[in-house]
Design a protein around this nucleic acid. Sequence first.
DNA 1: TTTTAGTGACTGACTGGTTAGTCATTAAAA
DNA 2: TTTTAATGACTAACCAGTCAGTCACTAAAA
Lengths: 188, 188
Amino acid sequence: MDAALALFSEKGFAATRMDEVAAKAGLSKGALYLYFPDKVALLKTLVQETAGSVIGAAALMMAAHEGPVSPLLPLILGFVAEKLETSNIAAVIKLVLSEGRAHPEIGKAYLENVIGRAFPLMEGLIARGVAGGEFRAVDAGMVVRSFIAPMLLAAFWKSTFEPLGAAPLSVRALAAHHADLIVRALKP
Amino acid sequence: MDAALALFSEKGFAATRMDEVAAKAGLSKGALYLYFPDKVALLKTLVQETAGSVIGAAALMMAAHEGPVSPLLPLILGFVAEKLETSNIAAVIKLVLSEGRAHPEIGKAYLENVIGRAFPLMEGLIARGVAGGEFRAVDAGMVVRSFIAPMLLAAFWKSTFEPLGAAPLSVRALAAHHADLIVRALKP
DNA sequence: TTTTAGTGACTGACTGGTTAGTCATTAAAA
DNA sequence: TTTTAATGACTAACCAGTCAGTCACTAAAA
């Protein structure tokens, strides 16, 4: 699956040959078909296993938190940034956004299980801050999009532009700087 | 080229058949090869023609502006948001980010001509605001990424998730709301 | 101990369907 | 008539998925 992720992210799903995946994994193509019924199943498994792990941890983080919301925002972005830098989740995000429409089952699953869970949780958090007088009256939905968007940019920077020779981006630094901007912008 | 863009964005470059592009354009495949030497040339032309038009207008906007920077920020985001909503540039962005690594010539051209031009211009703008005492002392590079990222999110929302049934996103509203957040966050 | 039987992960040549790009030919315009 | 535009059948290559067979290893039987 690591081999497949690297190749899918580099060349695109359709342009990646099963022979290549097998070779990179140190197997023959036949052996691949002992573990995955077909090519799409490989993609699907890949996305589901990776996506599931992160959302769970982040949800836990938000649910467990009590008291003022402001200190939680840099923690959330820091957590995501760390995942982006130390795992291959950036490649998975690129894969889902790139191939999600061509493989609706995968795209819809991500929309429902990841975005559909994470966005409402974060919106609730922002709304809590507003209700408690900690934040100005803002549109929680819009704030969540503003809040999370730089992590999307970072994912593509790492998986598309850095391999092309672009200057490396410190995702952690961006996360910290951005969280600070948002917290300031939300002050009453 | 409209036909090609729609299909490349929907199914991915490698999975799109030249016959389909031709059919959608109301031509035969042979006729397509009268205008484009091969499939990659079609993709390349597509990206270059679209990308060039927007960066030029935005650069003009920034270069022409004098006086305080704050009022310019919502104008820039509003301009980009309007392009995202009324043209098919969202699909081009998706295409570049998805296929840029597999076709380095395209990816690098975008990195140099679009990102490499737009980012320094915007950084200069932020730096000007800081120098003039209009903004706090911030990292201009980080601010630019925070500033532009929601437009990237919007591009993928429109080209990947809305076709899968996700709730439509008002890019203009997001742009306005986000510009307001950033301007507030930059206040000394 | 040696032989026989069995297992299952793995291989790689093969097939059938698919598709980028070509080109001889036709149709329309000048 | 000549030139330009367009067609669509064709080819050569490619690749997902298959399957008959290999081989290292285990365990029961002799």
